[in-house]
């Protein structure tokens, strides 16, 4: 019983770390208009819409967060092993090293992408570089610290057998996927194409014609992150926190059955229920929010 209480307590802590990490992850990607939003920011100068938005083309969020988390966790592990640094301090140092490296990647990507299309006249703004990179590093630090910490707890207390840098890589990729899937919905069309009705999608002719002016002055990446603090960040945090928390409940409760395979079987059942539920939701949404054009008779 006591063991279960420790597990559940750890689980709560991990859920909290994941919530913070998820929120920071989404905001960090919004600072640099990463993943979905990136193609529009990249395209804008080509259709004559110059802008002051940061273009952080490092790679998709999943790979970027795999990079950050794996680096942070591995550096923390190395410092803790080699110099017997306290693990909390080691995790902070590891996250700092990873976030700084990531910041350098962000600056080279911004300069590189704009230089690669110089013929469209988009200038490199030094002040955009200097004011947006520090928040990117800061949010990346928080996210990396969160992910590395709960990976460590997963390995050491919950007893997952993989070494924790590998767990951090996997959870980092998952966090990035979460930010891309949950968070970007609240950025892409919402913030870059504000004069269109919600849910209308983006006609091809509108591609690249992003909003250039903000509430005050020109639209910049810090405005965008400020906007996403309302919905994108918290929802991503909630998504990741719930994933970690609820999924490990499944692990802890069902691990005792069928020689450890109980958790696997329960996971499979949950996925089947989810797929069926999603199908029902989709059919309902199509019926409720149509109309879709009937296929023309050929």
């Amino acid at each position: 019983m006591e063991e279960l209480a420790v597990s559940l307590g750890t689980l709560a802590l991990m859920g909290a770390c994941a919530t913070i990490a998820g929120a920071a992850e989404d905001l960090e990607s919004d600072f640099g208009s990463q993943s979905n939003a990136n193609s529009q920011v990249q395209l804008a100068p080509q259709v004559g819409y110059l802008h002051r938005v940061y273009n952080k083309a490092i790679c998709g969020e999943p790979v970027a967060y795999g990079l950050l988390s794996a680096t942070g966790a591995a550096v923390a592990f190395a410092l803790a092993t080699a110099f017997a640094v306290n693990i909390v301090i080691a995790l902070a140092l590891g996250a700092a090293v990873a976030a700084l490296m990531y910041g350098v990647y962000a600056t080279t990507a911004y300069m590189g992408r704009l230089t690669g299309q110089k013929r469209f006249g988009q200038p490199i703004y030094i002040d955009v570089l200097l004011t947006t990179t520090p928040p990117i590093i800061a949010h990346a630090f928080i996210a990396t610290m969160g992910i590395a910490t709960f990976s460590y707890l997963l390995n050491v207390i919950i007893g997952q057998p993989f070494p924790f840098p590998i767990l951090a890589l996997l959870w980092g990729i998952m966090t990035g996927g979460m930010g891309s899937a949950v968070g970007d919905v609240h950025y892409g069309a919402e913030r870059q194409y504000q004069y269109k009705p919600f849910g209308m999608g983006l006609p091809a002719a509108q591609s690249g014609k992003i909003v250039q002016k903000g509430e005050v002055g020109l639209r910049n990446s810090i405005d965008i992150a400020g906007f996403c603090v309302k919905h994108g960040g918290p929802l991503t945090g909630l998504g990741l926190g719930l994933t970690v928390f609820v999924d490990l409940w499944r692990h802890i409760i069902f691990i005792e059955f069928v020689n450890g395979w109980g958790a696997m079987i329960a996971g499979l059942l949950v996925i089947v229920v989810w797929v069926i539920g999603n199908r029902f939701l989709e059919v309902w949404a199509r019926k409720a929010y149509g109309p879709f054009k009937k296929e023309e008779a050929t």
């Binding site: 790679c59 990079l67 794996a70 590189g112 299309q117 840098p165």
Partner: peptide
Amino acid sequence: NTGFIAPLFIVGALPMLHPFNACLGPDE
């Protein structure tokens, strides 16, 4: 076994994929 394979995989890969990803465009 130490888990360093994770950064080896991804920190090793980034220098190979990042340069073109960051610099692509007509004036590359």
